[in-house]
Design a protein around this nucleic acid. Sequence first.
DNA 1: ACCTGAACACCGTTCAAGT
DNA 2: ACCTGAACACCGTTCAAGT
Lengths: 184, 184
Amino acid sequence: MRADAQRNYDRIVETARQVFREQGYDASLDQIAKLAGVGPGTLYRHFPTRDDLIDAVMQSWVDRVEDTTDKALAHEGGPRELLLNWFEEYVRLISVHKGGPAKITSAMGDDGSPIRTKCEVLRAANERVLEQLRAEQAVRSDVTSLQVARMVGGVATVADQSELEDAFVRPMLEVLADGLLTRP
Amino acid sequence: MRADAQRNYDRIVETARQVFREQGYDASLDQIAKLAGVGPGTLYRHFPTRDDLIDAVMQSWVDRVEDTTDKALAHEGGPRELLLNWFEEYVRLISVHKGGPAKITSAMGDDGSPIRTKCEVLRAANERVLEQLRAEQAVRSDVTSLQVARMVGGVATVADQSELEDAFVRPMLEVLADGLLTRP
DNA sequence: ACCTGAACACCGTTCAAGT
DNA sequence: ACCTGAACACCGTTCAAGT
């Protein structure tokens, strides 16, 4: 990539990160281009769709997913506490930008989505948690990581769009956890 | 209301119903006005916001909610089957138009929303089902109809945005039901 | 009292002209 | 090879002029 192209690319991603943080994922691309000091055509050359830009912004965030999963898996306490803690972390992970939960969760399982690699990372994280709990026979064996990602993502989507406080989200995650855990 | 105003009002609502059915709740209001044969200003005079128009379109649909709830409450079989059957009907009820699940579920609990009366009807329907199950001690006593509306609405939102088949939705509703039912 | 439709601001997208 | 920015189509919203 030519030096000026690389510079523009980086500028756009950095500006987008800021604007998305303030206004959410449906912010104006025109405004991002203006703030980044490039023409709208330049933004479109690098990122043909909004999701391509979102994918680039998400890049730096992938490592955090791995770390968060590691920590959740090392959680003290029983399977219920482990699962609940993971759900809360998962909601936090996909809720960093307004509109994120809906965007990520609806792309989950869509192989053609520009953000599919990010979805795959999240699905794999859920799979790791499920595997550990399956080994303890603590969780239903017929439930898939895709289903879990969709259900927790559904709660996160509602919470994001209704701007719910954490205190209102927690009981819903508890119901989900109880539905997934095997009866003692 | 003047005769021509009434006529325009009805035309707009009827046209909106058709366009929403084909294109979902985020269809162009400009197009609806054109198809209804009125100026854009007329549409705005009658319906200051998109949600006001959606509310009017939903009006005819309220009766169906009551009926569906009655039928679900008379369902044969155990509490789990009753709850599952109701969830499936509920998802159907809020998914008649694309974008409906998200719109309805995110307005749930918001007293300032133009569609709040419709949300209240749906919340009350969930309350009726919960009350019957509570009487049988079949369902957790600490769960509210608002929570249920949000959780099932969350699943419906994901299903709507990912265009999931019913077969993929059912197992998620099962997890929800199992999380809500008391342990036998 | 209500309607019309021009006008405005904004957005996404394309593409000819430039370097 | 890449960028610029004018141009286009579309949308929501407002409001002066009409009936």
